[in-house]
Simulated scan of single mutants.
Amino acid sequence: MSQTSRNNDNFFERVYQVTRLVPFGRVTTYGAIARYLGATRSARMVGWALNSSSSQEEWVPAHRVVNRKGLLTGKIHFPGSNTMQQLLKAEGIRVEDNAVVDFDMHFWDPNVELVKESKK
């Protein structure tokens, strides 16, 4: 296995770890996860990681990750065209026109929340 492949695997696993911490009924963004991981310009790579998350033994709630405007840009990677929206709806998050309604209210920022938790 090449060094690049190992680095990607490690990055992907870190993405999965953070995504598993997004609370029920909340959403975060690809960019927020990338910033938390110290890879500010790697939002797209976070998306690639989440596209592969179904292969993980432990469930990764990838449906809770949206783009910076609250759009469900990753929905094409779920089985069925409305799966992501249905999962969010089951958590009490309203989606209209493929966007999270009241996005700011539902937004969970690991850069704030996880830092706050580590100080407790």
Rank of each mutant, 00 (worst) to 15 (best):
Thr29Met: 04
Glu13Val: 07
Asn10Phe: 13
Arg14Glu: 15
Leu21Asn: 01
Leu21Cys: 04
Tyr16His: 15
Ser42Met: 12
Arg14Ala: 14
Leu37Trp: 05
Val15Phe: 07
Thr29Leu: 03
Pro23Tyr: 11
Asn8Val: 13
Tyr36Thr: 05
Arg6Thr: 09
Thr19Trp: 08
Gly38Ile: 11
Met45Val: 15
Thr40Phe: 12
Arg20Gly: 00
Arg44Thr: 09
Gly25Trp: 15
Ser42Gln: 15
Arg41Trp: 14
Gly38Glu: 03
Arg35Ala: 07
Val15Ile: 05
Ser5Pro: 03
Asn7Gly: 12
Gly47Cys: 10
Ala43Glu: 02
Ala34Gln: 01
Arg6Asp: 04
Val22Tyr: 03
Asn8Cys: 05
Arg20Leu: 03
Val22Gly: 00
Phe24Lys: 10
Arg35Gly: 02
Met45Lys: 09
Ala32Tyr: 14
Leu37Asp: 01
Asn7Thr: 12
Thr40His: 13
Thr40Tyr: 14
Thr28Ile: 06
Phe11Met: 04
Arg20Glu: 04
Ile33Asp: 00
Val18Asn: 01
Phe11His: 11
Thr40Ser: 12
Gly38Leu: 04
Asn7Ala: 12
Thr19Phe: 06
Tyr30Lys: 03
Arg44Phe: 14
Tyr30Met: 10
Arg41Val: 13
Ala34Phe: 06
Tyr30Ser: 10
Val46Ser: 02
Arg20Cys: 04
Ala34Lys: 07
Arg35Val: 11
Val18Leu: 04
Phe12Ile: 00
Val27His: 10
Arg6Asn: 08
Ser42Arg: 11
Pro23Val: 07
Gly47Gln: 07
Leu21Trp: 01
Thr28Cys: 05
Ser42Gly: 13
Gly31Lys: 06
Thr40Ile: 13
Thr28His: 06
Gly47Met: 05
Met45Tyr: 10
Ile33Pro: 00
Phe12Leu: 00
Val46Lys: 06
Pro23Lys: 02
Asn10Glu: 11
Phe24Thr: 14
Pro23Glu: 00
Asn10Gly: 03
Asn8Gly: 01
Arg35His: 08
Thr28Lys: 06
Ala32Phe: 09
Thr19Arg: 06
Asp9Trp: 12
Arg44Cys: 09
Thr19Ser: 09
Leu37Thr: 03
Asn7His: 13
Gly31Cys: 02
Arg26Trp: 13
Arg6Trp: 14
Thr40Arg: 14
Phe11Arg: 02
Val27Met: 09
Gly25Arg: 13
Tyr36Trp: 13
Gly25Ile: 15
Asn7Val: 15
Val15Lys: 02
Gly25Pro: 14
Gly38Tyr: 07
Leu37Ile: 02
Phe24Val: 14
Phe12Val: 01
Thr40Trp: 14
Asn7Asp: 15
Gly47Ser: 06
Gln17Val: 02
Arg14Lys: 15
Arg14Leu: 14
Tyr30Glu: 08
Thr29Tyr: 01
Arg20Val: 00
Phe11Leu: 00
Gly38Lys: 08
Arg41Ile: 12
Arg20Gln: 01
Ala39Gln: 02
Arg35Ser: 04
Ser42Val: 11
Ile33Asn: 00
Gly47Thr: 08
Arg14Ile: 12
Val27Ile: 15
Arg41Ala: 11
Phe24Glu: 12
Ala39Ile: 03
Asp9Cys: 09
Arg26Glu: 06
Thr29Asn: 03
Ala43Gly: 05
Thr40Ala: 12
Ala34His: 07
Phe11Tyr: 12
Thr19Ala: 12
Asn10Gln: 10
Ala39Thr: 00
Leu37Cys: 01
Thr29Val: 00
Glu13His: 03
Thr19Tyr: 09
Thr19Asn: 04
Ser5Trp: 07
Asp9Ser: 13
Thr29Glu: 04
Arg41Pro: 11
Gly38Ala: 09
Pro23Arg: 06
